[in-house]
Design a protein around this nucleic acid. Structure first.
Length: 427
RNA sequence: GGAGGAUUGGCGGAGUGGUUGAACGUGCCUGAUUCGAAAUCAGGUGUACCUUCACGGGUACCGGGGGUUCGAAUCCCUCAUCCUCCGCCA
């Protein structure tokens, strides 16, 4: 959530920034500033009345002690009148504040200066292209959903039986591969200074609101109505919220967190070839990294995270490119986002496997997550990224590394999986 | 699921209606003492919002919300969390 003061003091930057999202917010910002003016006015008036009440109450106490009942009674009437006014003012203030909050909640984050304007994925900028030549796997190459049958990696039909479509059941060496990847990623992340957490998979409404899933993405989360809890769409939500409401010391920053969790997404909509197999599912595994950083350092940390994720993909030997998303394709809460896409040789398309973002103070404002500076307190910057999301990594590994000898695993996985290649389970 | 107890500042812990943002201790900061340090002594030490060019002033906050009262950390209602005991359970 943007700060009203930002809207006041950096109006032009906000407006030009939001235009990159194809959003003209001039009128809305004007309205918000006016609401905030009204809020201040009401609070000033209310504070004055309360000050008078406090003063009179003191006097009443003294008058009673010295037995001047009549004077006390007169002042008591004045206080009662003040209370009337106060309750009226507070009611109006509640209305104004609620309206203000709702309006602010509707405004997305301001894209960073370097972010391109654009309305869709078409306009994204290739930030770091793939340098090598893309692997060719021949015309008889199979997509991963066919390989999954041959090699017993996962079974979508079983998922339908237990749950419904979009809930893959990983089987045998597929389940093993999955676990191996989780372990590899967590090991690499903790080695890079990220502290490992295993957070809850269900979160309450305050938590979902603080990182921006509510109200913007309400329909994308599974909601457990009986207990009013949400299944997490990403570990970002519980991990970042671990620090909600904290006032940190400057020397504790940056804070680096990592965690493995299943992620749940309703993703109502598109069907067809693009969502076959593991390309888009309702439940998937992901290892996430999160950083809390000083504003002056956050973009350096963003680059650090990008390099870290790139290192993981290098180790896996997967061809990938890095995009810097345009304004229109970025998430609501992000100021700058890099997407990582791996090449899926049999499908001959790029698959998104990681998204690394700087949210600046957009989340920390909702989180009330600050740190102490020489001058006072300041909101920290929050960042996060996938390191990595598993299904499409598995898809790419299967497709790119298929061979007559089986699925050749990258060396880094040999120890983790306990084999050098996956063998067919059916002829 | 049932019964009881608790929730106060960085920490410990007072405080059952009035001048208490909160005793006392401890931690931390500054100064004095010291060659330096320890010890000791003195002073300071929360957050948010409103207001002010500034100095400063004001309001709110003692788990959350609501109420009683001229006045609430203190009384009432409600919710949450934690602890203890019982039940159930991976």
């Amino acid at each position: 959530m943007l700060l009203v003061n930002t809207l006041r003091e950096e109006r032009e930057r906000v407006l030009t920034g939001l235009k990159k999202r194809k959003l003209d917010a001039a009128a809305e910002i004007e309205r918000i500033v006016r609401l905030d003016d009204r809020r201040k006015e009401l609070q000033s008036r209310n504070d004055e009345l309360l000050a008078e009440r406090n003063q009179l109450s003191k006097e009443i106490g003294d008058l009673f002690k010295s037995g001047k009942k009549d004077e006390a009674t007169a002042k008591r009437e004045r206080v009662n009148a003040i209370k009337q006014d106060v309750s009226g003012l507070e009611e109006e203030m509640d209305t104004v504040v609620r309206e203000l909050e709702e309006a602010l909640l509707q405004l997305p984050n301001v894209p960073h200066e370097k972010v391109r304007a654009g309305s869709s994925a078409e306009d994204n900028e290739v930030y770091r292209p793939y340098e090598g030549t893309l692997p060719k796997v021949g015309s008889d190459a199979k997509p991963h959903w066919e390989l999954a049958e041959t090699y017993g990696i996962f079974d979508l039909e079983l998922g339908v039986r237990t749950t419904g479509s979009g809930f893959p059941v990983f089987t045998g060496q597929g389940a093993r591969l999955q676990r191996a990847l989780v372990n590899l990623f967590l090991d690499r992340n903790t080695a890079a200074g990220y502290t490992e957490y295993a957070p809850p998979l269900l979160v309450n409404e305050d938590t979902a609101r603080a990182t921006g899933q509510l109200p913007d993405k309400e329909g994308q989360m599974y909601h457990v109505q009986t207990d009013d809890l949400y299944l997490i769409p990403t570990a970002e939500v519980p991990l970042t919220n671990l620090y909600r409401g904290e006032l940190l010391e400057a020397d504790s920053l940056p804070i680096r967190l990592t965690g493995y969790t299943p992620c749940f997404r309703r993703e109502a909509g598109s069907y067809g070839a693009h969502v076959r197999g593991l390309n888009r599912v309702h439940q998937f595994d992901k290892v996430e990294i999160v950083q809390l950083a000083k504003p002056t350092e956050s973009y350096a940390k963003l680059e650090e995270m990008v390099d870290h994720v790139a290192g993981l993909l290098d180790e896996l030997g997967l061809p990938y490119r890095i995009l810097r998303l345009c304004g229109g394709d970025m998430g609501f809460t992000s100021a700058m986002t890099y997407d990582f896409e791996v090449w899926s040789a049999a499908q001959e398309r790029w698959l998104e496997v990681s998204s690394v973002s700087n949210f600046e103070t957009y989340q920390s404002n909702r989180l009330k997550l600050r740190y102490r500076t020489e001058r006072g307190t300041e909101l920290v910057h929050t960042l996060n990224g996938s390191a990595l999301a598993l299904p499409r990594i598995i898809a790419a590994l299967l497709e790119n590394n298929q061979s007559p000898e089986g699925i050749l695993l990258p060396e880094v996985l040999h120890g983790y999986v306990g084999m050098q290649r996956l063998q067919p389970v059916v002829a």
